[in-house]
């Protein structure tokens, strides 16, 4: 039985449209299977990727607010009836949600930003920003497992959370010290979930641009602890984490020659496998390390 479809406004962000296109493919397919249609914002723009942390700097919040106005317009135009904006990338999620909170809590700031964008409608502060994981958590227990056709039985995965969907507390979607949200979903698709406290340690984030070796050392810490606890794969919910954890394994090996590579997935890729989708919808990248049996 196919579920009723509920439409959500959806903000993809730059990376899911370029280097991480494959993640988006699997996410949209899994969503659909669960009765969720992610409707891309028309004319979305870059959210700014990082939330500006200085108090005297409003200009950097403008980009995020403009995207929130798009959600307002979609509702106005009847494209969706839903003011919760879904994101797939933890960085976009964090930036959009923090800016949204900031302008909701400071009406004066909102007014300034609205005035600055005088050509746009005013943002009224009614949008809520959520991560796709939160939508999955809301589903009826069993909604995911019911749709599993190929349970990932025997696959030991370590869900990696990183920073931006947990911290700071006011935007986090789970306990910042003991998150479980991804693990629950992976368990629902039959995988064996391994958790240790390194799964919430920063992967080095944008330092990857400037300081590859620092990032490599962090990545090594994270991955080797997961391996020590028996993980066969790492799962993320952020394309930047995925990049650092995956691509920087090259640099890790330069520093730690004994290091053995470990595959890294976006969480919806494994969901797609479990839902029995073909390789195209799982979005495996040619460069991605994928254990043989998952490809079958």
């Amino acid at each position: 039985m196919e579920p009723d479809i509920h439409k959500f406004p959806y903000y993809p962000g730059c990376t899911l449209k370029t280097t991480a296109r494959n993640f988006e493919v699997s996410a949209l397919a899994c969503a659909k299977k669960l009765g969720i249609e992610l409707v891309e914002l028309p004319r979305w723009n870059c959210c700014g990727t990082v939330f500006s942390l200085t108090d005297d700097d409003l200009i950097h919040h403008v980009a995020a607010v403009r995207n929130l106005i798009r959600v307002q317009e979609m509702n106005r135009d009847g494209m969706v009836e839903e003011n919760r904006l879904v994101t797939l990338c933890s960085m976009c999620f964090n930036t959009l949600k923090r800016v949204n909170l900031l302008v909701k809590e400071n009406p004066e700031n909102l007014e300034k930003i609205n005035n600055f964008m005088y050509l746009e409608d005013d943002y009224e502060g009614n949008v809520e920003v959520i991560h796709f994981l939160e939508l999955l958590r809301e589903l009826d227990p069993g909604a995911i497992s019911q749709r599993v056709e190929r349970p990932l039985t025997g696959l030991r995965v370590a869900p990696y959370y990183g920073c931006l969907m947990l911290r700071p507390r006011e935007v986090g979607i789970d306990d910042p010290e003991e998150p479980t949200i991804q693990g629950a979903i992976l368990a629902a698709v039959g995988a064996e979930v391994i958790y240790n406290s390194y799964m919430k340690v920063c992967c080095g984030s944008y330092q990857t641009v400037n300081d590859k070796s620092a990032v490599a050392r962090l990545v090594y810490d994270i991955l080797s602890h997961a391996q020590a606890d028996g993980a066969q794969a790492i799962v993320t919910s952020c394309p930047l984490c995925a990049y650092n954890l995956d691509s920087r394994q090259k640099e890790v090996r330069e520093i730690y020659p004994d290091f053995e590579q470990i595959p890294v997935f976006y969480f919806t890729q494994l969901m797609a496998v479990a839902f029995g989708f073909g390789a195209d919808l799982c979005g495996f990248d040619p460069n991605q390390l994928v254990p043989e049996h998952l490809l079958k």
């Binding site: 990376t15 370029t18 700014g48 990727t49 960085m91 976009c92 944008y206 641009v209």
Partner: peptide, 24 residues
């Protein structure tokens, strides 16, 4: 940023580049 090697620039996710620019 312009001094980064070309292959890096191609490979790096956009969010890393934009964030790097914003921070550095």
């Amino acid at each position: 940023i312009k001094a980064l090697p070309r292959d890096e620039l191609v490979e790096l996710p956009q969010i890393a580049l934009v964030a790097g620019m914003r921070k550095f």
